[in-house]
Amino acid sequence: MSTVIAATGLTKRYKNATALDGASFRIESGRIVGLIGPNGAGKTTALKAILGLTDFQGELSVLGLDPRKQRGKLMEQVCFIADVAVLPRWIRVREAVDFVANTHPRFDRRKCEAFLARTRLTPGLRVKQMSKGMIVQLHLALVMAIDARLLVLDEPTLGLDILYRKQFYQNLLEDYFDEDKTIIVTTHQVEEVEHILTDLMFIRDGKIVLDADMDSVGERFAEVMVGADKAAAARALRPLDERQVFGKSIFLFDGADRAVLEGLGEVRRPSVSDLFVATMKGTYA
């Protein structure tokens, strides 16, 4: 397993805001990493830094290259989809495929056409005539035909209906992902990516506040449903969060002793979205 991204002290300040504040993290190959954070937490800036689209302070190496200086070389091995609406509106399906086929050294035309054949896209169709879902199908067809080592997805399913969203991730998993590839995805629809992620990163105010693989998330965090009689005891264990459901309290614990928790009530693995809400409490306050 090799390191795909190594970031140390990543910092980016705009005129009146700090987008990244000394963020450090490592991403190994063969992982699907969810970079999750509230609006304005620095997700997009982090991705832009990785893609060499913005300047920053700190150290960052992507596939062993410096994205600031070796962007041209880097982009042969990195693909990204930055939400659905970035394909030029004037381009036709045929032109898009021709262009990428002739400018990208790692593009496999047959793969792209095979993928397009499973959609309703026709060669003469222009992007401006397509629905959002069709645009993302075209973009995905182009990207999946590129043998890249890193795929960056920034809110790739924003504004799509549920059929397209499900299909999008299914295609990624079945036809694209393997142990040599790495995917980073940011999204607000956490529930939809939860089951495909291998790693989870929470970002808040430009800092990485949680960086763990999904297995250790399951070991570290636990959710317990506690009756009113034992609520005080649960509170004594200093939970991250507490909420009420049907007269019972649900507590979220970080690193608490399992055996003790079992004694309080039913222990479950928390969902990523509950974990997220608990971790980000007070962000907008």
Binding site: L51, G72, A82, V86, P88, T103, H104
Partner: peptide, 13 residues
């Protein structure tokens, strides 16, 4: 129209 992001996702200098 942000299509810049698409062009910049290709290995073009």
């Amino acid at each position: 129209d942000r299509s810049l992001l698409f062009w910049k996702s290709l290995p073009l200098s």
